[in-house]
Design a protein around this nucleic acid. Structure first.
Lengths: 222, 222
DNA sequence: ATTTTTCTAAGTATTTATACTTATTTTTAG
DNA sequence: CTAAAAATAAGTATAAATACTTAGAAAAAT
């Protein structure tokens, strides 16, 4: 078989450069292009038609899971390997449902990384060690991508962009205000403030205040 | 001049592998060892005596800034380059005060990375683009590591106020951990973590997480 | 050797946040 | 003008944090 054309999508340039250097020695693999966010990745896919997409979950504009979903719908021949560089196991189930062919944690070694790429390029699937356990406990049988539990109606966060109101609420959250105080300040109910908080945290894929502060700085939302 | 012996400290194995691959082509540089956390880094430094430490800020056990501080105290000849792989500019001032010889953001390219390494290995300093602006606005003159603003007295006070355990718990709080997770990590009950949290917040006179982050940065506790 | 501090942790009550779902109204864009 | 997106807000259940108090061990300081 010929060369596997890889598209690398990650917002960390240094990480991308590192991975490219890592793959340079592999003669059957070529990184044909790079993307710094999800939107860019989709644009490149259309014109470069790579064989394999290596994609980080957390990216601005459009996150890795959404990219995988779109890829599997519009380019079913393109294989996808998801890298969870920042988190542990929380997104596994979502990735499998999105149709990812593989999932690697940040803790993976170069060897495992190469093994995963080659397996996926050859039409297989690869999920690193502890990931498999999560998958089998979340899916019935080996037959299809049907989930056991209920959360299938997840909000379509197609565009990971905060609305005006959400940004306003984010600012107040970062000032240390609670939902009641935010509600008072904006003359909305505490419950509305709660809803906005919930939605914006989901959009930014953070699960607590500290992650929210870091993410906000990262995205220069503040 | 001979080869520069590099120690690479980052908790992401894949990132380490990538960086190693990136430096493999450089004949004047060798990565002699790797560390997955701050403690490990310090242990390796003692026995391997590298010339340059490339260190990520966020690491378990001991964070990058603390490692730099200890290095500058105990091994003043060892150069240090801090990589801020996850965050933007928040820790810059702390790094400079800790004595770091360079600071690179996640957005840096391979070229900038190599430039930084070579400059620092040659006895220089390197701070990427926008970082310099932050530094000059925080330090007077080019002469020494003296800070412009006034909060120099506060640091000791607060450091004296918080006990060792409380500082430990503060760090975990600032990593976004909840009481249960802190309890698990330190092998104490969730209720004890709660108690420590309560006490330290009282001592620092803050009433929520955001005030706590601000106060912690102000007092340079982190 | 003994005070004092720190660390541990449970009790209790109250408040706040999380994790959703549903649903109406308002705004905006095609 | 109409469909889609955003803003509003309540329901429900669960989890976590807050605000204390008390109190026994372990460690540190005198």
């Amino acid at each position: 078989m010929g060369q596997t054309k890889i598209l690398l999508a990650d917002d960390h340039e240094l990480v991308r450069d590192g991975i490219i250097a890592l793959l340079e020695n592999e003669e059957n693999l070529t990184v044909v292009n790079e993307a710094a966010n999800g939107k860019e990745a989709l644009e490149i896919i259309e014109k470069d038609t790579p064989d394999l997409l290596i994609v980080d979950i957390r990216m601005p504009e459009l996150n890795g899971i959404e990219v995988v979903k779109k890829v599997k719908k519009d380019f079913p021949n393109l294989k996808t390997l998801v890298l969870s560089m920042h988190d542990s196991t929380e997104y596994v189930v979502q990735c499998v449902e999105a149709g990812a062919d593989g999932y690697l944690l940040k803790g993976s070694s170069k060897e495992e990384f190469l093994k995963a790429i080659n397996k996926i390029a050859g039409g297989g699937k690869y999920f690193s060690g502890d990931i498999s356990a999560i998958i089998v406990s979340n899916f019935v049988n080996g037959n299809s991508e049907k989930r056991v539990d209920t959360n299938s109606q997840k909000q379509d966060a197609a565009l990971n962009i905060l609305t005006k109101r959400e940004k306003q609420i984010l600012e107040l959250i970062l000032e240390g205000k609670n939902n009641q105080e935010i509600g008072d300040e904006l003359k909305i109910s505490k419950r509305t403030a709660e809803a906005h908080r919930f939605n914006l945290m989901k959009k930014l894929e953070v699960k607590n205040l500290m992650e929210l502060t870091h993410k906000s700085r990262e995205l220069k939302l503040i």
